[in-house]
Design a protein around this nucleic acid. Structure first.
Lengths: 228, 228
DNA sequence: CGCTCGGTTGATGCACATCAAAGGCTGTGG
DNA sequence: CCACAGCCTTTGATGTGCATCAACCGAGCG
């Protein structure tokens, strides 16, 4: 009996995620063999760019920020991973995998860490699961490409597109809320611009009542005209 | 006997790619069931962003440019796919897949097109093949992230990093050659900048003897100091 | 021979970076 | 309880890298 209580609980949580829909608890348990639940505090490092990738992860709660540090010191955010998202799965099949990004917790978070062999032995041979994994990667990649297509657009359009992307999953009626404790700096790092520029754009919108901030950001109007 | 002669030939070509290493011809033939070899001329459209994704592809020869058109008209290049690369595989598992980019031939090119069901029925259940597919996606994603990390760097560094990335697979000694018929405009679109800016940077290097162009680009010195 | 396409160069201007300074908030240790 | 150190946010002044606009040239091509 090596399974911890935390792992048992995690299996029940996993069953709620789209990733594991259609799999029964026995199957999920097999996919989590040897798993360990890691609890992170704000800004804790989960793994580091270039480090030997022995484990991959499934986010249980909170969020993790995936980033790389550029040549001029400051770092650029690649992706924000919330509950149900997978981390570092793509590099697992490689013979000597290293993490392609650094992962850091944003606020208190929890992640289920699984050994590389589990991916090779149990995840890869499961077509249903793999199609779900590729689905997650596909949306991540599509989002990436969407931002790249906006590179030439003015900054305000980039910020608008970025914020709308984050609330895209929540459909909701009028007032949308971003499910992450985002700072202006993180938005800036995600867009490859400076904090000051982001602040100038956003505080202008706040003045006009388009958005409202109080540790979270709530959108009030639908300035999708900004995207166009 | 529905297999065309072209398909039979394509199977032998595929066997050379890293994607299919370790698979025998019978297995490869099964993975290519119902495949069709498509021959493209320069700038021919293979598939279009947003179109219904019934087929995916494996590039046999030449190259294809994957791009999206931004909000302000002009388009941004996401990726260049050479021989052995796969196209649109990631979206195949989705219920109603659409192409996430447009694909256009760069010079005369050939691609093996396969139906979506073949991916679902034969590719997904093959762990070895899937791990190779994820490897290709992983390098594509890593390259993407590398460019994103350089967003804040000066233009010259971006161009240098981009060119070095393209020759990264060819190891070679001193003078490296880019295996694509790249125009300055395509470089500019890939970097999200204007043609003129790219030209100013590159013709400066040409003057200093760092590079040499004649429909292809050949690197002579190693300005990796530019990356730093 | 007119056409399009790729490359090149120069002049001008703007959007954003950079630098500087200050205030609020949180946690931490004396 | 206070002092201090980070972190986040904000605002203003100044500068600059690159976009934009406008030409021109050479080569391939029907």
């Amino acid at each position: 009996m090596t399974d911890s209580v935390a792992l048992q609980g995690a299996i029940h949580e996993l069953a709620r995620f789209a990733l594991f829909q259609g799999l029964d608890h026995a199957q999920i348990a097999a996919l989590c063999a040897g798993g360990e639940v890691r609890v992170s505090r704000h800004r804790d490092l989960l793994f580091e760019f270039g480090g030997k990738a022995n484990v991959f992860g499934v986010v249980l709660g909170g969020a993790y920020k995936l980033s790389r540090t550029g040549p001029s010191g400051e770092d650029s955010v690649i992706h924000f991973s919330g509950p149900g998202d997978i981390l570092a799965a793509l590099v697992m099949p490689q013979p000597q995998p290293v993490y392609p990004v650094s992962a850091r917790a944003m606020g208190p978070s929890r992640v289920l860490l699984l050994r590389r062999e589990v991916y090779l032995r149990h995840w890869l041979p499961n077509p249903l699961l793999i199609s779900r994994v590729q689905g997650l990667l596909s949306t991540r990649m599509t989002r990436f490409q969407g931002m790249k297509a906006m590179q030439r657009a003015p900054l305000s359009a980039k910020v608008a597109a970025f914020l709308l992307q984050l609330v895209a999953e929540d459909k909701g009626g009028q007032s949308l809320e971003i499910p992450l404790p985002l700072t202006r700096k993180e938005i800036a790092d995600a867009l490859g611009v400076t904090v000051e520029s982001v602040i100038r754009v956003m505080s202008e919108w706040a003045k006009q009542g388009h958005i409202q901030s109080s540790d979270q950001t709530i959108r009030i109007l639908h300035p999708q005209y900004l995207v166009e």
